[in-house]
Design a protein around this nucleic acid. Structure first.
Length: 891
RNA sequence: AGGAGUUUAGCUCAGUUGGUAGAGCGCCACCCUUACAAGGUGGAUGUCGGGGGUUCGAGCCCCUCAACUCCUACCA
């Protein structure tokens, strides 16, 4: 292969699918259950099986793939285990919407036929998201792909359910739960989203029996008054003290209810009297329990008023009923006041319908014991959050968690393995489908209609995917897993529950580290959503900019766990970076055309040019930075390190330094530089690979120094790469920095004086000491080339007439850079340049002197800090002198 | 109401234990220099949200105020 095959622009579409296929065919993604390598495991948070990839996934996956590739290259038996989730309520809703187009409902179809439709839907769309993940470069062990409704997972789910039931941690109870009247199912607390909305506070007069007085009650939900069981006041409320125990007439009905007292009531709010509707409000429910009030349910599962209300309100929806009841109260003189009031309304997170507190019989997980364990392991650091500030959020939530309602009145999901007996009503819960009641032996038993909350199976994911309840090799090797990567939006839904279940069933945490990243927002900080039209389709982004550009963009934006703003121009920037990598390679391969990798050991350092020793030294620094950053999940720092190394050290300076050598006459110099170039390029690809796998593998395959495949080559670190890095030299690095500064100084004079790049100029360079003299002498050709000089004198300067002057200093070395300007420019620009510099230096001297004039500073500050300032003053002063001299000569 | 977070250059963000403010993009000027115009070289840009305190010294530590964001809970 040679460079002619590389076009001058990187074309991702040409390499991505080819490279991915090759990796897959070679089995590079596969992990072994039995391996002498240390295990490293990440379980993929399973995306919804019928969903499609969005930017949130792309971020989540880029992080995980970066970690997995890094660890795989670092010698680990790295497993990234993929899966998909059946996403009960979400998927069911999607299919129901499809049915609606055909004027069908799931009820018309019946359970069996409906489930057939959902499976068909899953078969049609289930592979879409997998294909999209492959486009992104996800290096999952696809042989192990698991779906939450697979036989194996279903068995885990049932085992967990049965065990928890036997241990009395799962129970059935009739209580108030969140109910979505549209989905007609129970929801967990987490599935309810609270949103502020405008409402009213209605003041209603309840006539007090045996008096002519009324008691004013304020409510935001007048329609629920038909289910009132009492009026409650604060026991110390002087206004109402005497009324406690009296009876009021419930308007619009023939019912009478008592006035009770409870400290729960806030005397300041509304009228200080609260109507208690135990069946339709969580707080009222609690008060109802303590005061043993009747629970009067006035709603149907569809959210309409039922037969317990007066005839004329029956079958009305909640909003309709509210309107009618307010009207009726007004007509009959019970309504005393209506005022605006903001309140937050719970809505179904899947369909946005208003959620009703609803009394029904559901299955619950007793959470307190599980939560205590989940708290403990995070408190003692067995599992830690990165960044750690999520620890507080997590513990705070676990501190006040309530039992988890796990039954859903849906059809798509894991059906609850409970059968009730027609005869004795006993409930049989068992691993295998029973044929008779375990209590009375009656064969007439029917399975519970409900399915489990999707998150129930998700909670078992870290061990159910590895084969549990079998003690499989995979489970032994990979549990507990190493890192869980997910967004902060599902810490409660998922992270906490996995820890609970892992502890309960595997007696160990499911993962050592929970890496929590932020969510992706648009340029204005809003959530990305289809309805806002601000979402970016990652597949489109890949098609336009390449998967690597997308990955690098995401990885360099993810920092400190905060939400990140995403804009398309970042993709362009990183697309350009890919192109830079590509073109640097193109040049390098040309330079390496006649290069044959030597068989012998590495050369001795003394054969290498200063630039070669410098770039190798810098490479060592970058290897260390990458190792540090990746070990601490600092993806953006790692991305920045390598970006700046590749662009600003390797391309901007190193490749420019070596051009004369490569094109030059000295074969020996050329050979050693080619060796360094080839080795450096090889390491750059290895360092970059976890971030931008496609382009790096494609390039790697063309390199003169390489192994079989980049994806399984070694990730370079200062430790494993020490033989090569030993060729780097700090001294050479210092020398190069000095040379770079001199070059920059000349370029600055050129730029500020608007001397065109094509115009050759001469320069005189006056080093202050013999060491600097030697360094500059050795690197004269670099300086002449990169500063585009026709002549360059190094040594004492006698004539400074009409010259531009700049002083360069680094460490001990002080260098005067002088460019004669006669015949090149009029001197106005140079005079301005010098004046500007003088001003700057004067300011600095001033502030330093002020500091040093402060006795307290000199006394209290560490000696070296003060000494450094003193040196700076000296340096600045000599610069100032020299600048003032040249200014005088110009004027 | 409780909790968490943010506020640094026009934009997006870095700033480790307190020691004279950084990057990328954008902007300005000049350049099609034989890897790359998706490029090169040079340049300008900040009372680090306001106020107060500790300190010789604060972007960083403490107090306070303000604005914004998210989470949890919710007063009917």
């Amino acid at each position: 292969m040679n460079s002619e095959e590389l076009s001058d622009r990187y074309a991702p579409e040409e390499v991505e699918s080819r490279i991915y296929k090759w990796w897959e065919e070679r089995g590079f993604f596969n992990a072994d259950d039995a391996s002498i390598k240390p295990p490293y495991c990440i379980i993929l948070p399973p995306p919804n099986v019928t969903g499609s990839l969005h930017l949130g996934h792309a971020l989540d996956h880029s992080i995980q793939d970066c970690l997995i590739r890094w660890k795989r290259m670092s010698g680990f038996n790295a497993l990234w285990l993929p899966g998909t989730d059946h996403a009960g309520i979400a998927t069911q809703n999607v299919v129901e919407k499809e049915l609606k187009k055909e004027k069908l409902t799931r009820q018309i179809l019946g359970r069996e036929k409906f489930l057939e439709r959902v499976w068909a839907w899953k078969d049609q769309y289930g592979s879409r998201i997998i294909e999209q993940m492959k486009r992104l470069g996800d290096s999952c062990d696809w042989r192990r792909h698991v779906f939450t409704m697979d036989e194996s997972v279903s068995r885990s789910v049932r085992k967990v359910f049965v065990t928890l039931y036997q241990n009395k941690k799962i129970y059935q109870g009739e209580r108030l739960i969140n109910w979505c009247p549209r989905c007609e199912t129970a929801l967990s607390d987490l599935e309810v989203e609270h949103r502020d909305s405008k409402g009213s506070l209605w003041h209603i007069a309840y006539p007090i029996i045996g008096t002519m007085d009324t008691l004013i009650v304020a409510t935001t939900r007048p329609e629920t008054m038909l289910g009132d069981a009492a009026i409650c006041v604060h026991p110390d409320d002087v206004r109402y003290k005497d009324l406690i125990g009296k009876i009021v007439q419930l308007p619009l009905t023939d019912r009478q209810i008592p006035i009770i007292a409870d400290k729960y009531v806030d005397q300041e709010f509304g009228s200080g009297a609260l109507k208690i509707t135990p069946a339709h409000d969580f707080n009222d429910y609690k008060i109802g329990q303590t005061h043993k009030l009747a629970i009067i349910n006035i709603l149907t599962p569809q959210g309409t008023l039922n037969d317990l209300v007066p005839e004329k309100f029956r079958k009305l929806s909640v909003p309709e009923a509210r309107k009618k009841i307010v009207e009726a109260l007004k007509e009959q003189g019970f309504l005393k006041k209506e005022e605006g009031h903001n309140l937050s309304v719970g809505r179904c997170s899947r369909c946005e319908s208003v959620v009703e507190p609803f009394l029904s019989k559901q299955w619950f997980v007793a959470i307190q014991d599980l939560a205590a364990g989940a708290k403990r392991v995070v408190e003692n650091g067995t599992t830690s959050f990165v960044p750690e500030n999520w620890t507080k959020t997590y513990l705070h939530w676990l501190g006040k968690i309530e039992d988890w309602c796990i039954s859903r009145q849906l059809w798509w999901g894991h059906r609850i393995p409970a059968w009730s007996c027609a005869e004795c009503k006993h409930v049989t819960v068992s691993m295998d489908d029973p044929s008779q009641c375990e209590s009375c032996g009656n064969a007439e038993i029917t399975q519970d209609e409900d399915v489990l909350d999707t998150w129930f199976s998700s909670a078992l994911w870290p061990f159910s995917t590895l084969g549990w309840p079998d003690e499989s090799e995979a489970l032994k090797t990979f549990y507990p897993t190493d890192v869980l990567v997910t967004g902060h939006d599902i810490i409660f839904f998922w992270v906490a529950r996995m820890i609970m279940m892992g502890l309960d069933f595997k007696k160990d945490v499911p993962f050592r580290t929970a890496y929590i990243h932020g969510l992706i927002r648009d340029s204005q900080g809003r959530k990305m959503s289809k309805s806002l039209g601000n979402s970016v389709d990652p597949v489109e982004a890949i098609e336009k900019y390449g998967a690597d550009a997308l990955r690098f963009t995401l990885l360099s934006s993810v920092a400190s766990g905060r939400d990140l703003k995403f804009t398309v121009d970042k993709l362009e920037i990183n697309r350009n970076f890919m192109n830079k990598i590509w073109n640097a390679t193109r040049f390098s391969l040309t330079a390496l055309k006649d290069f044959v990798p030597p068989k012998e050991e590495l050369p001795s350092k003394s054969y290498l040019s200063v630039s070669d020793q410098w770039i190798t030294y810098r490479l060592g620094e970058v290897e260390k930075e990458m190792d540090d950053s990746l070990s601490n999940f600092k993806f953006s720092e790692a991305a920045q390190s390598i970006y700046s190394f590749v662009w600003h050290d390797f391309c901007d300076w190193y490749l420019e330094f070596i051009k004369p050598i490569i094109y030059g006459p000295d074969n020996q110099d050329k050979k050693s530089t080619q060796l360094v170039l080839a080795h450096t390029l090889n390491r750059v690809m290895r360092l970059l690979h976890p971030f931008v796998p496609f382009i790096t593998e494609a390039i790697y395959q063309k390199l003169p120094i390489r192994n079989d495949a980049l994806i399984i080559d070694k990730y370079p670190t200062p430790a494993n790469d020490r033989n090569w890095l030993a060729l780097g030299s700090e001294k050479a690095a210092f020398e190069m920095e000095l040379v770079k500064e001199v070059i920059t100084a000349i370029r600055n004079i050129r730029g500020e004086n608007r001397i065109k790049p094509g115009e050759k100029i001469t320069a005189k360079i006056n080093p202050s000491d013999a060491e600097a003299q030697k360094i500059l002498g050795n690197n004269k050709s670099f300086i002449m080339n990169l500063a585009r000089l026709s002549e360059c004198e190094i040594g004492p300067i006698s004539d400074r007439q009409k010259c531009a002057v700049t002083l360069v200093s680094r460490g001990e070395a002080k260098i005067e850079v002088v460019v004669p300007l006669i015949g090149l420019v009029d001197f106005d620009e140079e005079i301005n340049r010098i004046k500007k510099n003088i001003e700057k230096i004067q300011k600095e001297i001033q502030s330093l002197n002020k500091k040093l004039g402060n006795e307290e500073y000199v006394r209290n500050a560490p000696g070296d800090v003060v000494e450094k300032d003193r040196e700076l003053v000296m340096q600045n002063k000599s610069q100032l002198n020299s600048l003032q001299e040249s200014l005088a000569r110009l004027q």
